[in-house]
């Protein structure tokens, strides 16, 4: 029983980690808290849903088109909208992304109605058992492994490529980066695209495991915050650890208190971590 709860928690936590990675990247590099993050996750989920429903594309295969679409969308939104006010006070950008969230969510609701939808793959129910104590659903395990693969790719881009070097340089010192020839507006837009692309990937995986609606984004944004705050900004490891912690705590907490307490648990952790250890438990360099 306990093992099953831990497995469920960890598998869901992996998804939380991926959601938070994109948010953490954008926050760390540009100092923007993207409230619309959950809406981008929702768009990724619906991209997968429509590719699956209309064209019969396997949801795991739709990962690539979903990431590509969301990357382009993120690039455009940053370059031509957020960039216009990026140097005004921090909370102005926060309100702007709130506006983007309202816009995207309601557009999705007008286009696709508020119905709850599912991506039902034929192999959705497959699972294997660990002894007699626990079962592991195959799709969840695959999603978890994909999260790890995507994190490694993101890690590689950030740490081993020229693009990654210019992103890190811009994040450390904007003016110095500009002086050494980094195209700052482009770097910002690409970073935002990468973060939103990661959100798209998270959305694709989410749609395979859970029901989706146009309004699902808000709570996912808040969960991404919780994860970023728990793990702390400034490293790729932060969101990963934060995600697993949130997944585990939620699984244990809802088991003890009941499913209606899931959100209360998350937000209580958020506020407590912020008060006790605002830089996250890894204590990243902000």
């Amino acid at each position: 029983m306990l093992l099953q709860i831990i497995i469920n928690g960890l598998l869901k936590g992996g998804l939380y980690a991926l959601m938070a990675m994109g948010m953490s990247l954008i926050w760390g590099v540009m100092d923007i808290i993207n409230i619309a993050h959950g809406s981008f996750i929702m768009l990724g989920a619906f991209a997968t849903y429509w590719l699956f429903t209309l064209l019969g594309v396997d949801p795991f295969l739709s990962l690539l088109p979903s990431i590509a679409m969301l990357f382009i969308l993120g690039y455009i939104v940053q370059r031509y909208l957020i960039n216009l006010i990026i140097r005004s006070s921090a909370f102005i950008t926060l309100v702007l992304t709130f506006g983007i969230e309202i816009f995207i969510n309601n557009l999705a609701q007008v286009l696709w109605s508020a119905d709850v939808r599912m991506v039902q793959v034929p192999y959705g129910a497959a699972n294997f058992s660990i002894g007699t104590v626990a079962t592991v659903p195959i799709v969840r395990l695959m999603a978890f492994l994909l999260v790890i693969v995507i994190s490694l790719i993101l890690f590689y881009i950030l740490n081993r490529t020229t693009l990654g070097r210019s992103i890190r340089a811009t994040s450390q010192d904007l003016d110095a980066a500009r002086l050494t020839g980094v195209d700052v507006p482009r770097t910002y837009a690409v970073t935002f695209g990468l973060g939103v692309g990661a959100a798209g990937a998270a959305g694709t995986l989410w749609s395979i495991l859970f029901p989706i609606t146009p309004m699902m984004g808000g709570i996912l944004t808040l969960k991404s915050f919780v994860v970023v705050i728990i793990g702390g900004l400034g490293s790729m490891l932060g969101p990963l650890i934060g995600g697993l912690i949130l997944g585990l705590t939620e699984a244990m907490g809802t088991n003890l208190l009941g499913a209606t307490y899931e959100n209360l648990i998350g937000f209580t952790i958020l506020v407590l971590v912020l008060i006790i250890r605002p830089k996250g438990i890894l204590g990243g360099t902000d």
């Binding site: 909370f91 926060l94 209606t260 959100n263 008060i275």
Partner: peptide, 28 residues
């Protein structure tokens, strides 16, 4: 008293979290 020790984004997120936590509490 605790939350106002945070600044900038962290204050914004903490207050947002307080409001959401309160909603979840009232719902329960």
């Amino acid at each position: 008293l605790p939350v106002l020790r945070l600044r900038g984004h962290y204050f914004a997120i903490a207050t947002l979290g307080v409001a959401e936590a309160m909603k979840a509490l009232v719902q329960n």
